[in-house]
Structures are given as structure tokens and as C-alpha cells.
Amino acid sequence: MEDSHFQKRLDEIIALEKAAEPNPFQATKILQRIESEFLTPKTSGFPVWTRIFQPIAISLALIAGVLIGSFAARTGNNRNDIEVAKTKNLQSLRTSLFISEITDENNILNFNK
């Protein structure tokens, strides 16, 4: 007798649980999720090989930059050497033409003012 009463009580609780209904708009939510996963084209642009070669390309560009920089620095030093050679040539020219001193044009202009 107690068992059947207990069973009845249990069935009542189960009936309460079974009565719960999901959100009526849940189907729309699920469909939106499915569409975003399977029907919307992916916009993640870069294919796999691009993702691999991008860092390699950046590294190469950096190395190239360093090399170009060091080359430019060396060329700059050469230019200084040329300047020194030019000055030496002028000195020898002055000596051979017996010119005591090369006139500084800027000083002359200042003097005239």
C-alpha cells in the first residue's frame, strides 16, 4: 500500500519534470548556429601556406634590410675617403701653383658686409 503511494508520489514528481518545455525560439538559435558553422563562407583569408611563408618573408626582409644598411654604411665610408683624397689633391695643386692659401669665399663675403 505504502509502495503504491510512494510510486504515485514519484510519478507526480516525474510528471512535473516532464512538463518543462524548452524555449520556443531555441530552434531558431540552433539554426543560426548551424548556418554560421556550415553555410556562411569562412572569411579567414589567409590559406595555410601563407601563414607559413609570412614569417619567413618578414625574416628575409629584415635580413635584407640589415645587409643593405651595412652596405650603405661601407659606401658612406668610401665617400669620406674620396673627400680626403680630393683635399690631398687640392693641397698638391696649391703647392705646385705656388698659392699660399686657398681663399675661403664665405669669409670674404662676411668681410665685405
Binding site: E17, K18, A20, P22, N23, Q26, A27, K29, I30, R33, I34, E37
Partner: peptide, 28 residues
């Protein structure tokens, strides 16, 4: 199938919101 899936998940989890969230993963 959504009603059956959500209700079954709910009966195991005891929480409707959890069951609804899980139903999305189940369908995927």
C-alpha cells in the same frame, strides 16, 4: 528533433538553459 534532444538533455542535466546550450553542440 530539437524538442526531444533538449528534453532528454534537460532530464540528465536538470537545467533547461544548460540543456538548450548543449543542444546546439549536439546538432553540430
Amino acid at each position: 528533433y530539437q524538442r526531444g534532444v533538449i528534453k532528454t538533455a534537460f532530464h540528465f542535466l536538470g537545467n533547461m538553459e544548460d540543456a538548450e546550450d548543449l543542444s546546439q553542440e549536439i546538432f553540430l
